[in-house]
Write a protein that binds this DNA or RNA. Structure first.
Lengths: 201, 201, 201, 201
DNA sequence: TATGAATGAGCATTCATTCAT
DNA sequence: TATGAATGAATGCTCATTCAT
């Protein structure tokens, strides 16, 4: 329709396509084996174009990971929003995360790749992100403690514990083919977090 | 005692030295960036010698990882042994694992590298190993349930939960420089596993 | 005209240059000792470029050999064409081959290298090529037999005999420095083929 | 029987075994791919022992080739001996060579390997040997010329021609699986050498 | 701006040779 | 003398990045 013989796209659209391609390629091949050429191919652009949008392979990876983290965060926020009860907000947020990882197992791979390849570069993006979001969750825990529903443990400890449990569940989800998907395990996992395994405690 | 160019040692000693060097190099550089030459250098041998003992880089890595798993397993067994109470056995075993990872953070790196690089090759050694040890732990959980001390949840669920928590704690331990070492977090983590975070549950 | 580091040329020109370099390097060093880097150097390109045009060292060698065979074949065809007499066609064709090998002794080396290195891979290209050209030569022999000028031997035997003689002459040409060049031996060799060494036969 | 616990062999026996092994390995794998270790294995000795008997791989190869040449020469001499007619001596000698190559195709491979790998080192052993034997054959040709049975061509030319034909036949014998064995082609080849292919010449 | 041809550093692996035992 | 463990030079191939077009 337009006069453009070359189906020009807006830079943003290009970037989005590139990131989507990058997520898949990095997840499928792993960071080191991933070929920038393949990302370009899947995005339908030349290899050089990738370097117009990203400064290098590493930058591309980080951008791809960041994009996934953005989506994850958005999902969790959406899920929390409609609830007024802090515990429900917590439960819904985590369940949304589980659902997201089920839908986008590539993201899990990206976490692992980042951890494996950029070990030296300080805090992984995934952790940095969850750290930066802690201030949003802390009040929920405090409210639960104040209202006498949650044990009077340090908020940091409570969040660390939940973080570990979630991180462990997510990371090990891919590992064993026999395991059910994450959301199916959610209730069980969250139940243990809330009530522990002992009786009459 | 001369700095013999053709130093001869017993095969076992050589293999041990090579594995120790490999563990460090793989942990420091990551599997892909690790240079076989560097492993040889650190072990004080020629590069060709590495290939006398291992069929290739991959074999070297697996052997290194397996060795660490052997040590970990031994530590956990030792720790469990002296206790008669199942809960104490559990506690001691896990604590021993935490202590091991504190002492040998390289091992954590090796787990991550395996997960990242050999993703396609089925179950990672780490998971395979913990799976194969589950039959040793299951009776402890059953005993605790039967004796009415533990909630009547499926043993698999109980073990999965603990596994996730431990895996998460270990994996995230390295990530944040600010965090205390693992053993220092142990009581807290195990407490949450046992009692949960809610009050009057 | 600057000594551009990223010199761009047409693919055909590049390929031609690479093949010319490959012919020389393989002939001088032998297949195994030939270093792909040296081929690249002589062609004035980076090593990676070689792999853009050929899938590997072996492919490069085969392409180089094939190119030489193409030229040889062209020379022989040219030489035969202008003659109407079958015997003259034969004589001219073979003489052209001898002249070609004098001009391009590298080609002889390539034949030898192929025979030596790819012994397992079935018929060498050189033989495959001469086999495939036999159908063009057979009618000449038949015509000579029918016209009563050539002995009534099986055409295959006649061609085999000539082939052996030519192959032997070419292969041994390089061997002894003292020998005259091939074309200078041609009349003698062809004379023996035609008339044998005995008198009054 | 002897008191020797270690079945010591005489150095000569060792050397013979090593050479036999070397002939086979070099012929099967080609000079470059041949592994000194494999020669040692087949001879039932340690790798180091090979180096006690030969200064290196090259020396080993030359010794192996020389040994084969010795046998070939002996065969040809034996075959010539009983005949008084020069032409019969020639015929029997060449036929014996053909038979030898049929029995020991490894030898052909060795010739090719030498030609391919030691291109720079002047005259190949095979040629050197046939050169050095020319003085034995020359008188036969002279006698045939003098007696009026052979054409009055330069003896060198006659020998070159025969050499080329034999060399060509032998070298191409291995190449095409479809061809009959050498001795079966002998009469045909020798017939062409003697009488040529033209009629009424 | 978009492209993809060209580049070359980087690395696993082999194997002839050496030499401690 | 015989051994085989140890050595390290040598080399094919990949792929992130650059840049001429």
């Amino acid at each position: 329709m337009s006069q453009a013989r070359y189906a020009r796209k807006t830079p943003d659209a290009r970037k989005t396509e590139l990131l989507a391609a990058a997520v898949m390629v990095f997840a499928e091949r792993g960071y080191r084996s991933a070929d920038v050429q393949e990302v370009a191919d899947r995005a339908g652009v030349g290899k050089g174009t990738v370097y117009r949008y990203f400064s290098g392979k590493e930058d591309l990876f980080c951008a791809a990971l960041t994009k996934q983290l953005d989506v994850l965060e958005a999902r969790m926020c959406e899920a929390r929003d409609p609830h007024s009860d802090p515990l429900e907000r917590l439960r819904s947020g985590i369940r949304a995360a589980f659902a997201f990882f089920d839908e986008h197992p590539e993201t899990v791979e990206l976490f692992i790749q980042e951890r494996a390849e950029f070990r030296d570069r300080g805090i992984p993006l995934y952790f940095a992100r969850s750290m930066s979001r802690r201030h949003e969750w802390a009040p929920e825990f405090e409210a639960l403690i104040v209202s006498g529903r949650m044990r009077k443990l340090p908020v940091e400890a409570l969040m660390d514990g939940l973080g570990d449990l979630v991180y462990g569940a997510v990371m090990s989800s891919e590992a064993s083919a026999g395991r059910p998907c994450l959301v199916d395990r959610f209730d069980q996992v969250f139940d243990i977090y809330l009530h522990g395994v002992l009786l009459g405690s």
